[in-house]
């Protein structure tokens, strides 16, 4: 399990990185390395050049800008997970991060790496999709923004061009009265999810749901936004029956993979179970927030 040989380039700036990516045929970005280095060792990834971003300190930040939370692509999972700003403004993201691997993985893994890798079973792509995050990409032609909903295509396939860099992820701040819940089913603690549901429900003071943001990981070739479930909840009081019905809609929209860890029907069925649990927990939390607890 030793990697095939490659060239190594330590990027000194974002522009330098982009230039290096364009200069070689099979160049690849190295961020936290928690996915890429094992793939190299297995010789499943065989880049000719690795462009290492790790010295780009200006890509690691968490800050509030224009009512959004802006997180630099190179910010480590653990930094984001424990950032006060994130806990306060985008708690679903912090909750989800606690499910990514283990602390040691999160010490190194980056937000940008998780998004760029685009694993459909991973937490961050799904949360980004649920929360309508936007991704700032930079390439030789300049900068563009892509909505999370337009970014993930299929298994490990994204809108990133080979010579583009993901530089920043912008997260809308969740409104007052929002409750969040992550329900994740794994075989072992820290494993990738068989299925996971991410829910953020905003409840009005009158007990009616004003906004619902729900997504599912592990349920299709790309992270799935459960619009139909969201529509069913908005305007409802999120009774147990409402939650169940919404979760059933969510499950019906899934097209899960069949693999050694679980058959597709099981995953679909679990999407309904976890969906219901997540909706109910998010609802309860929103009510507690509204009650000032």
């Amino acid at each position: 399990m030793k990697a095939a040989a490659f060239d190594y380039h330590r990027a000194t700036s974002v522009d330098d990185a982009i230039q290096q990516l364009g200069a070689a045929d099979d160049a690849k970005v190295l961020a936290g390395g928690q996915s890429l280095v094992p793939l190299l060792a297995m010789r499943l990834a065989r880049p000719t050049v690795l462009v290492d971003l790790n010295r780009l300190a200006d890509l690691a930040y968490v800050r509030r800008e224009n009512g959004e939370l802006a997180i630099g692509a190179l910010t480590r999972h653990r930094t984001v997970e424990t950032a006060e700003l994130v806990r306060r403004d985008v708690p679903l993201l912090a909750d989800a991060l606690a499910h990514v691997g283990h602390v040691t993985i999160r010490n190194r893994g980056t937000i940008g790496g998780s998004i760029a890798h685009g694993d459909p079973a991973a937490e961050l792509p799904a949360v980004a999709v649920a929360l309508d995050a936007t991704f700032r990409l930079r390439g030789p032609g300049g900068e563009r923004s892509v909505a999370a909903g337009d970014f993930f295509f299929g298994y490990l396939m994204t809108a990133l061009e080979p010579d583009e860099l993901l530089t920043e992820i912008r997260w809308p701040v969740l409104p007052q009265g929002t409750g969040c819940a992550v329900e994740e089913l794994t075989r072992r603690n820290g494993d990738f999810a068989l299925v996971a549901v991410f829910a953020a429900l905003t409840m009005g003071a009158d007990g009616v749901c004003t906004q619902a943001r729900i997504s599912v990981a592990g349920a299709a070739a790309a992270p799935l936004r459960a619009d139909n479930a969201e529509q069913a909840l908005i305007g409802s009081r999120v009774s147990a029956a409402d939650a169940g019905a919404a979760a059933d809609r969510l499950a019906a929209a899934t097209d899960p993979p069949n693999d050694i860890h679980a058959p597709a029907d099981y995953r679909r069925e679990m999407a309904a179970v976890l969906g219901r649990r997540a909706i109910q927990r998010a609802w309860a939390q929103a009510n507690r927030t509204n009650a000032g607890e």
Binding site: R187, R188, N189, G190, D191, F192, I260, H261
Partner: peptide
């Protein structure tokens, strides 16, 4: 070890 699931301390 992602596929052959030896239990961790949590299991």
């Amino acid at each position: 070890f992602m596929d052959y699931l030896m239990p961790t301390a949590s299991e």
